[in-house]
Structures are given as structure tokens and as C-alpha cells.
Computed example of a mutant assay.
Amino acid sequence: MAGDPYSALGVQRSASAEDIKKAYRRIVKTDHPDLTQDPAATARFKAATAAYDLLKDPDQRRRFDAGEIDDQGQEQGTRWRQRQHAGGNPFGDAPGHGGDPDLSDVFADLFGHRPGGRSAGARTTGFGGFGGFGGSRTDQRGDDVRLLVEIDFLTAVRGGRSRITLPQGGTLDVAIPKGMRDGQVIRLRGKGAPGIGRGAAGDAHLEVRVAEHPQFAREGDDILLVLPISLDEAVLGGKVTAPTIDGPVNLTIPVGATSGQRLRLRGRGVNGGDQHVELRIAMPVQVDAELTAFFETWRRQNAYDPRKGMSDSA
């Protein structure tokens, strides 16, 4: 710790002993080395630990406030207690650690440690308990993870299975419920980050992205399809084959059908929705001389203006 121990804990000099303890507990919850790998958080935790170690003792706090000792506990140029150990742990036997019941109480709320022994199921880390700061740690549930998974359109609307790669390695076939929408989340229990000790693994939350389909689109539980029809089918009508999400069906084209006209297939959508078929007249690849001659004659005898009235409203 270097500087003001009150600043290291984020409290005023007038803070009560309970306020100091609460401030330290907040820092432990966010910056403890067992909870984060952030070097800056580790530095904050070390500074806060040294500050708490100094200020939790009423006599030490009084002497620091009076200027008799500095933030390192030094008095008249001599350390009143050697904090730095040969092994490099500045807090291993510092006041307030080890068997100190006051500091143990702080960790009890966070890690389940109780003075006088290790709690059931707890284990010690390779860094001497709490990341090198003494004590022990209970089993902890693993973190939840959030994954993005893309599934094809028909699997989403029909339901099915999709194979995903788990963050800890390996693959898993996931059941996709029928009617899955873009942005919905599937929860996989126990497929998140592994737990600590005997702690259960966290959950995996799969956020679904539904890939576009070259023919179908979706509006709620309705399916939309643009269906090309030939010139003669538009004029004469007839039966054509139309694709649906459950397979092809026969569709009746009315006589004189026009582009943009919609036909409805009841119950052919998702979960009882409908499929709407929008007709679009497609001209032949090549307009031959016979077709040209026919329409030239037809136009002379039956000309009409489908844009009539549009200019009046412009």
C-alpha cells in the first residue's frame, strides 16, 4: 500500500469501523484474485487489504491519524512489524490475517470460511487459499456463458436439432423447439463454465440467429412466399405447385391473376399460422415473333390503361 489507506478503501477519515469493514468487503467481492484475473483489480485488492489491516486496529488507526506511524506502519524510521516475507507475500502473516477472527468474518460472508476450520466442500488454491492471502474457499458454481448460434430457417420453423461447439470444447446436438424466432434464447443447464471444487457447472444460454431462406420469409406465425407464374397462367388460371415449409402443395391460380395479388394457404404457416403466396408474373425468357404478333393484334383490339387516374392524384 502506498499513500492514504482511507483512499485505498474509498472512505472518509471520519468513517466508522463498520464503514471501513463494509468498504473492504465490497472490494473483496469485485477485486479478489479468485474472482478476476485483472492485474489492476489485484493491485486494488492488495492495497485495500493492507489498508484494512492497518485501520481495523483502533490503536493503529489512532496512531496513524495522529501521525505517529505512516501508512506502512513505520514508526520513527523503523518498521513496527515486518510485512514483507522472504517468499514475496506481503500479507501472509500481516496483522488481521491467518487466525484473526475479524478478517475471517469478512471472508466468511463471501467464501463460506469460518474460523477454526474449513467449511464443508471447501478447497485450498495453489496460491495458499484465497489467491495467496490465507484462508479457504467453498465450492462455487461456474459462470453462465452466452453463445450465439445460427440455425437455418426451416429448422427454426419446423423444429429439429442443431450441433454447436461448447466453449470448454466438444460439440453438442441441441434440440430446437418448433417455431423458434430470431433472438430467442435456449438455456442449457450445466453446459456453461465448470464450477470450482464440487460446485456445479454454470448454464449456457444460446441466443438464436435464424438464417434467411431464399424463398420463405416470416411475419409472426405467417409464412410469406413470392411465387412466379407464367403469362398464360396469369391469363388463363390453373393449378400450379407451390412450396410450403412442410412440402409442396397444389395452388389454384385464378383467371386474370396479376402481380402482387396474394393467395392464402390456411394453416400452412408456423404453429397454425397461414402461408401467404404473392403472385408475380414472369415473362418468358425470349419473346418470339408469334407472341409479339399476337399481342400487337390484341392491343389494337383490346387496349387498356392500367395506370389510369394515377396522374390525377399526383
Rank of each mutant, 00 (worst) to 15 (best):
M1P: 13
A2G: 13
A2H: 14
D4G: 05
P5S: 00
Y6K: 03
A8Q: 01
A8P: 03
R13N: 13
A15V: 04
S16T: 15
E18Q: 15
K22R: 12
A23F: 14
R25K: 15
I27M: 06
I27E: 04
V28A: 00
T30F: 04
P33T: 05
P39I: 00
A41K: 13
A43D: 13
R44V: 04
F45C: 03
F45Q: 00
K46M: 13
A48E: 01
A48H: 07
A51H: 02
Y52D: 02
L55A: 01
D57V: 09
D59S: 08
Q60C: 06
R62W: 01
D65V: 11
A66Q: 14
D70S: 11
Q72I: 06
E75I: 14
T78P: 07
W80G: 05
R81T: 13
Q82A: 13
R83C: 08
Q84K: 09
H85E: 08
G87H: 12
G88E: 02
G88C: 02
N89P: 09
P90I: 11
D93R: 14
P95G: 03
H97L: 12
D100Y: 04
P101E: 01
P101T: 14
D105A: 15
V106N: 00
A108W: 05
G112L: 08
G112N: 00
G116T: 02
G117L: 06
S119E: 12
S119Y: 11
S119V: 08
A120R: 15
A120P: 11
A122P: 06
T125C: 09
T125G: 15
G126D: 11
G128S: 04
G129H: 04
F130N: 08
G132F: 09
F133M: 09
S136F: 10
T138I: 13
R141Y: 00
D143S: 15
D143P: 07
D144P: 10
L148M: 11
L154P: 05
V157P: 02
T165L: 07
L166S: 05
P167E: 01
P167T: 00
P167G: 00
G169V: 09
T171E: 08
L172W: 13
D173L: 15
V174T: 01
I176M: 02
P177H: 10
V185R: 07
V185A: 09
I186T: 05
K191V: 02
G197K: 07
A200V: 10
G202T: 04
A204P: 12
E207Y: 12
R209C: 05
V210E: 04
A211I: 14
A211G: 10
A211V: 12
E212V: 11
H213S: 00
P214M: 02
R218W: 01
D221P: 02
L224G: 01
L225S: 01
V226H: 06
V226T: 15
P228M: 06
I229M: 07
L231K: 10
A234V: 07
L236N: 14
G237W: 06
G237H: 06
G238P: 08
G238N: 06
T241F: 11
T241Y: 04
P243W: 05
T244S: 05
T244G: 07
D246C: 06
V249C: 09
V249P: 07
S259Q: 07
R264G: 07
L265M: 10
G273N: 05
D274I: 03
H276P: 09
V277I: 15
E278P: 10
P284A: 03
V287R: 15
L291M: 14
L291K: 13
T292E: 09
E296P: 03
W298S: 12
R300L: 13
S311K: 15
S313G: 09
